[in-house]
């Protein structure tokens, strides 16, 4: 199972997004500055955007899903149970997993943004998918929600999971690191080696790198363990 982007280009006026890369099963983190093309890359990878040049090939991938950066873009149902039904998942389980048990008949737009994000990620991650593309899955979530999503991502690591994020503190265990730099996708490689080349690293990782410490991975525990080495 592979997602293969070959010489992909997409233009918007003078701005260009370029991507070349092969994504195998595991957790791939894609980061980058604001406006660097992360969401465009997500749309191209999910085939919601057709490239101006190059190809996006799904090899052995029979199911895929994209979680939008903005959860409000997903809503099609008038209630949470209708919304869960549109994903083919049990609404009671989806609500319970999102900490919204008993609220199945509520209007999704009456939830807080964080609650809505938690609910939609719950719907998406309850089903198996060959390719899961999560665009900013942590934005709007509180720290408990972020930790829970990290756990779900870890449980889905036999799929190809693309996590597009600039989250600073709570990240999932990651297999491969990628970076969008001014519209171009760069493959930095597997962890932990890739971390030292990470230009848009979050604050805690920068702090470690400045002290010459490379964490084993990016989870909260990995970063705390690495930080303990400062004390030694």
């Amino acid at each position: 199972m592979r997602l293969r982007l070959s010489s992909v280009e997409w233009h918007a006026g003078p701005w260009k997004c370029s991507a070349d890369g092969v994504f195998v099963p595991g957790v791939h983190m894609v980061s980058g500055r604001v406006g660097s093309g992360k969401t465009t890359f997500a749309l191209l990878s999910s085939r919601l955007l057709r490239p101006d040049a190059g190809t996006v090939e799904y090899e052995g991938i029979s199911s895929h899903i994209l979680s939008f950066q903005h959860p409000e873009y997903h809503i099609t149902g008038r209630t949470l149970d209708e919304e869960a039904g549109s994903y083919g998942v049990d609404p009671f389980t989806a609500c319970a997993r999102a900490g919204l048990a008993g609220r199945e008949h509520e209007d999704p737009f009456l939830l807080s943004r964080g609650e809505l994000k938690r609910f939609l990620l719950s719907c998406i991650l309850m089903r198996p998918w060959d390719l899961i593309i999560l665009d900013e899955p942590f934005s709007a979530l509180d720290c408990r929600g972020k930790l829970s999503v990290c756990q779900s991502i870890h449980e889905n690591r036999s799929s190809i999971v693309l996590v597009i994020t600039h989250e600073q503190h709570i990240l999932p265990r990651t297999d491969y690191l990628w970076e969008m730099r001014s519209g171009t996708l760069f493959g930095l490689g597997s962890l932990p080696g890739a971390i030292s080349a990470w230009e848009s690293a979050p604050g805690p990782v920068r702090m470690l790198l400045e002290r010459g410490i490379i964490p084993a991975n990016l989870t909260r525990d990995d970063l705390l363990e690495a930080a303990c080495r400062i004390r030694e």
Binding site: R33, V34, F138, S139, A140, H166, Q168
Partner: peptide
């Protein structure tokens, strides 16, 4: 209101 959740480290 939580605008920072949309920003990378340097933009923040």
């Amino acid at each position: 209101d939580e605008f920072d959740s949309h920003l990378d480290y340097e933009s923040l």
